[in-house]
């Protein structure tokens, strides 16, 4: 009995917070737009019973999904999102790995402080931090002024409203998600393994490559997915820091929903995005499971 309850809780959670909303979105994606409240038809009228339900079903179609394939805006946005997510994941890894490594190598008494510094940005609103980046990256911003003052550049760089700004914003925002799992993996790494590798003829660099990297791989994979998955649907950063050339599916979705008030197409975009995300999420789960097994 108690076991049944314990098992039921996560399933109820999943049902209420994921499956039901998803069902609703899926239903909207199969509907048609209408100037009405809500802005789509058909709506299910339970008063008409079985016949009403049949009529309701017969009006649902895949028109919106077909539309997604016809207008090249959508698949370009998906591809561009994938590209931006991939590149920024790589950048986050390149920045995050050395930081995690430094933390794991730091003296024991320093580590809580360093950990604190990584988490500290979460204490201010995400939106404020992105706005701060606008102040830093704009033509009259701190960065350009500093570079001008140093004489590195002759005239201000156009950073804000470009993809570069989007990458900077993403790397900055998602860095902790990369650092923490890698740090966890490196922290567990037994220092005598590095010594053994050196003893058997490895240079420092070889030992890092042959022992440290493979043993922190679960952390690298976990961190990469924790960045890649949310960045794929990211909306705030590209709309605040990106320019007209920045095409991301999150932005498209927003515009369909709020500017065009085309809920069915917006829902179709969301459903496809979710289907694309299923692949990395499954891979991520597999990685976590394998790691848990290895630790037993």
């Amino acid at each position: 009995m108690r076991r049944a309850v314990l098992i039921a809780i996560p399933y109820a959670w999943l049902l209420a917070l994921f499956l039901v909303p998803f069902g609703i979105v899926l239903k909207i994606s199969l509907s048609d737009t209408a100037i009405a409240i809500p802005p789509y038809v058909p709506t299910l009228d339970l008063a008409e019973g079985w016949a009403g339900f049949r009529a309701f079903l017969s009006e649902l179609d895949f028109e919106n999904f077909v539309w997604l394939t016809e207008d090249d805006l959508y698949w370009k946005a998906y591809l561009s999102s994938l590209k931006i997510a991939l590149i920024s994941t790589i950048f986050t890894l390149l920045v995050g790995y050395p930081m995690a490594y430094g933390m794991a190598r730091a003296p024991e008494e320093w580590r809580p402080t360093l950990m604190m510094l990584v988490i500290l940005p979460f204490w201010t609103s995400f939106l404020i931090r992105v706005y701060a980046w606008m102040g830093i990256l704009s033509n009259e911003g701190f960065l350009n002024q500093a570079l001008l003052w140093l004489g590195v550049i002759g005239e201000p760089l156009a950073l804000l409203n470009t993809n570069t700004a989007v990458y900077i914003g993403i790397v900055y925002t998602y860095l902790p998600f990369m650092i923490l799992p890698i740090y966890a993996a490196l922290d567990r790494l037994d220092g005598s393994l590095i010594e053994a590798a050196e003893d058997l003829g490895c240079s420092r660099l070889q030992a890092f490559w042959l022992v440290t990297i493979p043993l922190s791989r679960p952390g690298i994979i976990a961190g990469s997915f924790l960045v890649f998955i949310p960045v794929l649907g990211e909306f705030v950063i590209p709309s605040l820091l990106g320019g007209s050339g920045t095409l991301m599916i999150g932005k498209v979705l927003w515009e369909e929903f709020f500017s065009n008030r085309d809920w069915p197409v917006a829902s179709a975009v969301a459903v496809v995005l979710l289907l694309i995300l299923v692949i990395p999420i499954v891979l991520f789960q597999r990685n976590q499971q394998k790691q848990a097994e290895a630790e037993q």
Binding site: S192, L193, E198, G201, L215
Partner: peptide, 20 residues
């Protein structure tokens, strides 16, 4: 002389086998 340049090998008390 760094460890990798010594004609010495050590068997560690904790074994230090590479888990991967």
């Amino acid at each position: 002389v760094p460890p990798n340049k010594r004609a010495v090998n050590m068997m560690f008390q904790s074994y230090a086998l590479f888990p991967h």
